[in-house]
């Protein structure tokens, strides 16, 4: 029992930078510097530090991305226009009540900003590799799926202690009265992915191509290409919490 638990715990924290060979690490620190130099909001280093462009063989990829498919989402945030079609599609698909949300658009506004004063920032569950909510749940009512890496709810086990809500650094969870359980984004697993429908409802609804969904372990996928390029900054939200999110932000 304990052994299994320990293994699970180890699997959760699968991307320690300490284990990277020196050379690769140097390369990556460079990239990290470039990125953090541009965007103070966080760096790519925190999640995919092991995979430098051109270095990863499929074998290494398998080790770096333990899930297959390793679902991930990338946002080109400068394209977001807050039309909220994604939110509407999500609410409709997943029967999200009016008092809750699984995805929302934040508005960043600064009157002091040079030039454009406003930018929209879509948020949803980050499906972290080291999810604070999963660690905190007393009854395994929220789990990290061992196949896909999706953080799912097992609603009937939820006792409603709301620890996962306080644990989540991203405000991605709310208590759903109809389900008698905490509810959150599951990358449309229940309503679409499990039935073979891709992509998620929000990605399908987006008219501006802000949201890109795919398998981060597949070098041919668009999310892979967006995350592993150096030309544009790529970052994650709140890297300091160590949650290692699988939702990335970049610009078009």
């Amino acid at each position: 029992m304990i052994k299994r638990w320990f293994k699970e715990f180890k699997n959760l924290g699968n991307e320690e930078i300490e284990k990277i060979p020196d050379e690769e690490r140097r390369e990556f620190l460079k990239i990290g510097l470039i990125i953090t130099g541009v965007f103070a909001g966080g760096s790519l280093l925190s999640v995919v530090s092991k995979v430098a462009e051109g270095l990863a063989t499929p074998e290494e990829l398998k080790n770096n991305y333990p899930y297959k498919p390793h679902y991930s989402m990338v946002f080109k945030i400068d394209l977001c226009i807050d039309c909220e079609r994604c939110v509407e599609a999500c609410n409709l698909t997943n029967q999200v009540p009016d008092y809750g949300w699984r995805t929302m658009i934040l508005e960043r506004y600064s009157s002091k900003a040079v030039d454009q004063k406003r930018i929209f920032l879509p948020i949803l569950c980050n499906h972290c590799n080291h999810p604070p909510c999963v660690i905190a749940c007393p009854t395994k009512a929220t789990i990290k799926d061992s196949q896909t890496g999706i953080v799912k709810m097992v609603s009937y086990k939820c006792i409603g202690c709301k620890t996962c809500m306080t644990a989540c650094p991203y405000n991605a969870r709310y208590f759903n009265e109809e389900r008698h359980a905490v509810d959150k984004c599951d990358f449309c697993w229940e309503k679409r992915l499990s039935k073979g429908i891709t992509p998620t409802a929000c990605v399908e609804a987006c008219p501006a191509g802000v949201r890109i969904f795919g398998d981060l372990s597949d070098p041919l996928s668009e999310v892979y290409r967006l995350v592993h390029q150096l030309g544009k900054p790529v970052w994650v939200l709140k890297p300091e919490t160590g949650a290692k999110p699988n939702v990335f932000y970049t610009i078009s």
Binding site: I81, D82, E84, I105, E107, Q116, R118
Partner: peptide
Amino acid sequence: TKCATCHIGVKG
């Protein structure tokens, strides 16, 4: 360019 200048969105 500068999408969110004219697109004030549902919030706007």
